[in-house]
């Protein structure tokens, strides 16, 4: 739609056209930037794996096969299996309403969806304790019926849903707004039903946006610490997620085991970054072609 020039990404512009600094300044700036990133990003990442394998592969594998570690992995997987689909469904629904229709209060709604991002994780956990805890709003009723939410698995899942609430929605809203609704309208005029339109037209268009949102949502779900720490109650083998288990091992001076478990999460982070880069590139490509 736009002028043909705009289709060529800036990075492909002939380099000669750009005004730039002398080579010496350029390399100095690159060196400073890389030194800073090495110190703050690469070094910690290397340290996780180095500490984990410090005492050899067999110690590493033994640490991972400890029953408490296995049960924390199981709990984290259960949490993710519930949290990610719920927030995915919400994200797609909210993006459909916000991007394809106009209505008053839309900006307020977007701000409210983003809200969990600006709330401290500790507060995200606290609010569920205030509602479901023993001194909370419905705590006494819950206790009378022997239902445990806080300091149990449901609380962990609720707090995680809160923290990762905006991830999918905030990725899809701008993408679907940029794509407009011409294609959906064409499908409907040609006789497709609403669901057919969504699954055959909208979904393929937002596929990479969804993958991007889901992978980030999943990373945060599996890695959330502050909010989960408040609602978990830290019962070993029962309500410890993987990050909480890392904390316990670390505080017991069991460093090798702590870093072994942490290396699983660091590995997950690396996969997340790789998938995210691919998804980002695909979304750019898709938007550039329109």
């Amino acid at each position: 739609m736009s002028a043909p020039v705009a289709i060529i990404p800036r990075s492909q512009n002939p380099k000669g056209r750009l005004q730039t600094e002398p080579a010496a300044v350029r390399w100095l700036l690159i060196a400073i930037a890389l030194a800073f990133l090495t110190l703050f990003l690469a070094l910690p990442l290397a340290a996780v794996f180095s500490q984990a394998f410090e005492k050899g592969l067999s110690v590493y594998l033994t640490a991972l096969q400890e029953p408490d570690t296995l049960s924390s992995i199981k709990l984290t997987l259960i949490t993710a299996a519930l949290t990610v689909p719920l927030n995915l469904f919400f994200g797609v629904t909210a993006a459909w309403a916000i991007a394809k229709f106009s209505f008053p209060g839309k900006n307020l709604l977007i701000t409210l969806i983003d809200l969990p991002f600006s709330v401290s994780p500790v507060i995200s956990g606290l609010i569920y304790v205030l509602i479901f805890g023993l001194q909370g709003w419905i705590g006494p009723w819950l206790q009378a019926h022997d239902i445990k939410i806080v300091f149990a698995v449901p609380g962990i899942i609720l707090a995680t849903i809160f923290v990762t609430f905006p991830f999918v929605a905030r990725e899809l809203i701008p993408l679907m707004e940029a794509q407009g609704k011409d294609e959906e309208e064409a499908a409907l005029v040609l006789g497709a039903s609403g669901l057919q339109t969504f699954f055959r037209v909208t979904l393929p268009n937002i596929k990479w946006g969804i993958i991007y949102g889901v992978i980030l949502c999943n990373a945060r779900t599996m890695g959330e610490f502050g909010a989960v720490s408040v609602v978990s109650g830290h019962i070993r083998g029962m309500t410890n997620t993987v990050p909480l288990h890392v904390e316990i091992l670390y505080n017991e001076y069991n460093y090798t085991a702590a870093f072994a478990v942490a290396s699983l999460l660091a590995f997950l982070a690396l996969i997340t970054l790789a998938v995210k880069s691919v998804a980002e590139w695909k979304v750019r490509l898709q938007l550039g072609n329109e």
Binding site: L216, M222, F225, P243, E247, L265, A266, L268, K276
Partner: peptide, 9 residues
């Protein structure tokens, strides 16, 4: 990386 790496790690 800081977005993806769990804070405890």
């Amino acid at each position: 990386l800081p977005f993806a790496l769990p804070t405890a790690v």
